[in-house]
Design a protein around this nucleic acid. Structure first.
Ligand SMILES: [Mn+2]
Ligand SMILES: [Mn+2]
Ligand SMILES: [Mn+2]
Ligand SMILES: [Mn+2]
Lengths: 220, 220
DNA sequence: AAATAAAATTAGATTAGTCTAAAATTAGAA
DNA sequence: TTCTAATTTTAGACTAATCTAATTTTATTT
């Protein structure tokens, strides 16, 4: 029905859509998939013919309900496989993304269903991203960006926005993995760097570059 | 390095090679992959350029040691995934082949290694086929074709040669699954049909069509 | 040893996905 | 509002994999 390439385009368009309300631009997609605008234009026509996106020449593209359903099903598979790789095969959270990029295209619905059941119906993947259910509903997670916090308070790390191994390994080294509880002690007025303290009283500094890629929830 | 298509050709050539000593013919490969001889000829040139097969125009093809290593690594992945699907996700043995056909092309070696370890280093897949090790060594299994038996005796079913769901479901219905112990009571001289008896004294008849697709070992 | 049949290869197209370079359109600055 | 710059689309080409139809080679009969 949809090829691996089409699926990757839909996933990219879906993710880019969730970053703003406007139509997704050709160049955004090209950047996100490391391809050329010319290739993207070709594919947008193809996806439009299949009613997976609404495309208007020079105006960018919006994903349709039908396209969104496909994207969410691929994202569901991706995140379930990531849970499998970390929880069952004991991979580290910075090692699983590329394998999941391949596994997400394995097409059997029954396989995904059984995998979900075997994993105990997880709601979030190892990076704190929510796993859409079979109907494409994404569990609400009350996550906020650490960089958006303006006052002191105690929080728990729930996920990340940058999934690159380099960033994940950096967080690991700093002790900033999902589940970690910490308090914001001070936010610098000039560069928005944060002074945070862990429960064991140790503390560290975080640049805005880092805080804008960390997702948090307030700590009970 | 190798595309999914190239991997499927190598697997087919490897399997066909093991059926006879001679070179594998273009038409055999075309038949096995449900494609045309013209397409096969094109691919044989490509595989030959990569030193994965030795190809001589009009003379058929032999797989090289290098090509065999690739084929065995794909077969290893296929069979390990089949074990995962039956043992872990509880699929039936007639349901797993098509999923394994997709999963076998997921490229991470580390994934296969961890899967193998998680499954407890199985030596055979759910259909009784041996799982090659990392070095491409195939465990000897002392299997024989049921149709080759010429005298009475007691045996245990260890595998099958026909992996189609239809055949596997037929075997299931007849109670002829791997592990089943039975005795050959009589072999008909005319059509080679066999009268066999199970350990519980129940008995049934098996046509040559069926017995030539059942693998057995002698029972201790 | 021809003639014929079977098998394999080549020739020429097609589709999916990609690219570079040129042309068209839109948006921003003067 | 007109000019310029950035973005986007088209045009044309390429690779991988496939097909049909025509040609060539090999094998089998007469
Ligand atoms: Mn991922
Ligand atoms: Mn993830
Ligand atoms: Mn199989
Ligand atoms: Mn098998």
């Amino acid at each position: 029905m949809t090829t691996t390439t089409e699926e990757n385009y839909l996933k990219a368009i879906y993710h880019l859509s969730s970053r703003h309300q406007k139509s997704v631009l050709t160049s955004e997609i090209a950047g996100s998939l490391s391809t050329t605008s010319a290739s993207v234009t070709d594919m947008l026509k193809k996806l439009s013919d299949k009613n997976l996106v609404e495309y208007e020449r020079y105006k960018g593209v919006r994903i349709t309900r039908k396209g969104e359903k496909v994207a969410l099903s691929i994202i569901r598979r991706h995140r379930l496989w990531e849970v499998f790789l970390t929880d069952v095969l004991k991979f580290k959270w910075d090692e699983v993304h590329d394998m999941a990029e391949e596994l997400e295209h394995v097409s059997s619905d029954e396989l995904v269903k059984r995998l979900d059941s075997y994993l105990g119906y997880p709601k979030f993947d190892p990076h704190g991203d929510p796993i859409p259910d079979t109907n494409g509903k994404v569990p609400a997670n009350g996550q906020q960006l650490l960089s958006e916090m303006t006052s002191t308070g105690t929080y728990v790390i729930s996920g990340v926005n940058d999934h690159s191994p380099a960033f994940l390994q950096f967080l690991e080294k700093k002790g900033l993995v999902p589940g970690t509880v910490f308090s914001i002690m001070e936010i610098d007025g000039f560069d928005h760097s944060m002074h945070i303290e862990f429960q064991n009283r140790k503390s560290t500094y975080i640049s805005k570059e880092v805080s804008r890629n960390i997702l948090i929830k307030s700590h009970a």
